[in-house]
Design a protein around this nucleic acid. Sequence first.
DNA 1: GGCAATCTCGACCAAACGGTCAAGATACAA
DNA 2: TTGTATCTTGACCGTTTGGTCGAGATTGCC
Lengths: 240, 240
Amino acid sequence: MTSSSALPARPPALRATPRGRAKAAIREESEQQILKAAESVFAEQGFKGATTAVIAARAGVPKANLHYYFPTKDDLYRRVIEDVCDSWLSRTGAFSATDDPAVALTRYIYAKMDLSRSRPDGSRVWANEMIRGARVTSDYISDTVRRWLRDREAAIRQWIDSGQIAPVDPRTLMFMIWASTQHFADFASQIRLLNDGTDYTDAAFTRQKRHVAEILLRGVGLSVPDSVDATTGASSAFLP
Amino acid sequence: MTSSSALPARPPALRATPRGRAKAAIREESEQQILKAAESVFAEQGFKGATTAVIAARAGVPKANLHYYFPTKDDLYRRVIEDVCDSWLSRTGAFSATDDPAVALTRYIYAKMDLSRSRPDGSRVWANEMIRGARVTSDYISDTVRRWLRDREAAIRQWIDSGQIAPVDPRTLMFMIWASTQHFADFASQIRLLNDGTDYTDAAFTRQKRHVAEILLRGVGLSVPDSVDATTGASSAFLP
DNA sequence: GGCAATCTCGACCAAACGGTCAAGATACAA
DNA sequence: TTGTATCTTGACCGTTTGGTCGAGATTGCC
C-alpha cells in the first residue's frame, strides 16, 4: 500500500524521483532514516517539542540535510502520520458479517495489540495528534476511517440481528477495542511503573493480549476461540 | 483534599501565604485563573507547545505576572498535573471486596466517564504526560496509584474467588476501564469527526456511559444494575 | 499616616528554534 | 570526459521563547 492512499489531502511531492538508481536508493534510505527518527522524537516530545535538530541527530544526518528531504517540519510530521496510517490500514485486517464473530474479533484485537507492541511510537504520535485536535488528520478520519468504521459497524449489527453476539452498541465496541489495545502503547510508561518498573516480556504480552480479548469477547457474549493463535495474531481457523 | 497529597515529591512553595485576607484572596484567584488557562493550553499544545505568553493571555494576566506566581513553566506544569491527580482521587470513589461488584464497577465506570466529560483537558494533560514518559508523575504512579491499584485488584480477586464475577485478569480489567473511559476525553476530536462532526449531547453521553458499562460488566459476567443512575453516576442502591 | 509586604506590568535579554544559503562532493547520462 | 542533476554540510539569520528586572500601584499592620 502506498502512502498516498492514507491521507488523500497529502500535498504533492516537491521533487521528482531522482534519475539514477543509486541516487534513488540514497534518497529512499535517507528518508526512511529521518522518518524513523522523527516518529520516535515526535512520539516522545510532541509536535512542538520535537526539534529538527534532534531528529536529524538521531537519524545521523546534518539538520540541513533533513530540510533538503523534508522542506518543513510540518511536511515531515505529515509524512510520519501518513506512514502510521498506512501501517494501520495494511497490517490490521478488516472483518465482515460473513466471518465468525469470535474469530474475527479476536484476530482484530490481536492484530491491534501486535501493532501497539511493534510500533508503539506510531500509536503515540497518533494519540498526540488526536489530543491536539486532529488538525492534520481530520480529512482522513472523516473519509477513510469513517467509511471503514461504518462497514465494521454494519457487520457487528448483522451479528447482533442474527443472534450471534449480544446486543451492544457497535460504535462503542469499536471505540473500546481501539482504546484498550492502544492503551498498551500510549500509556506504556504508566503500565511499566505499575508493573514493578519492568516491561512486558513477549510471553507476558501474549498473555495480556488474551486477557484483553477475553474481557471484550465475553462482553459481547462470546469466548476467545482456541483456533486463533495469540503468539502471532494469525488464525488457524479454516486451515487444515 | 489538598494538592500536596497527590504528588508527594512536590517541591515546597517558594513563597509563604500572604499576610492579609484580601491579598490571600487575590493570590488564590490569580493562581486559579492561571491554572485553569494552563490546563487547557497544556492539553491543546503539549508541554513544549504551550507558551507562557499564551497561558497568561488566556488567563487575562501579563506574562510577568504568571511568572510571579509560578516561577517556571515546569512549576506551573507540575501544579496542573497535581490538580488533575487530586480531582481523580477525590472525585472517583474506590471500591472494596465487600461491595456488590455490579454496583461498584458500574459506579466507578460512570464516575470515570463523568470526569472525562467534565474535565477533558485534565485527562488530556495526563495522557500527554504518560506519552512523554511520566517524567513528572513517576513517583506518584509508583506510590499512590500502585497502592490504589493493588487494593482494587485484591477486591476483584476476591469477587472472582467467591464466584461473584467471571475469572478475569484484575489488572487488565482496570487498564481497560481506564482506557475506555479516558478515550472519550483524549480522543474526543476523533470521536467528533466520526460522529458527523457533532459532540455528544448530555443525553447521548449518558447513553454512551451505559454502553461502555454494559460491555465491561458483561465482560466480567455481570449486567449493569438498574439501581445505578447513569445521569449522575450516583447509586441509589441501599437507599430507601 | 507610615512602612513593609505584596502585587502589577511594560520592557528587555540570552538561548533555542525552523529554515536558508552557497559552496563543494558525488553520481549518472552523453 | 564533460555537463548536469542530486546530495552533503557548516555557517548563518530572523523569530520566538522562558525568564528577568525595576519601577510603580495596592494592601495590611503598627
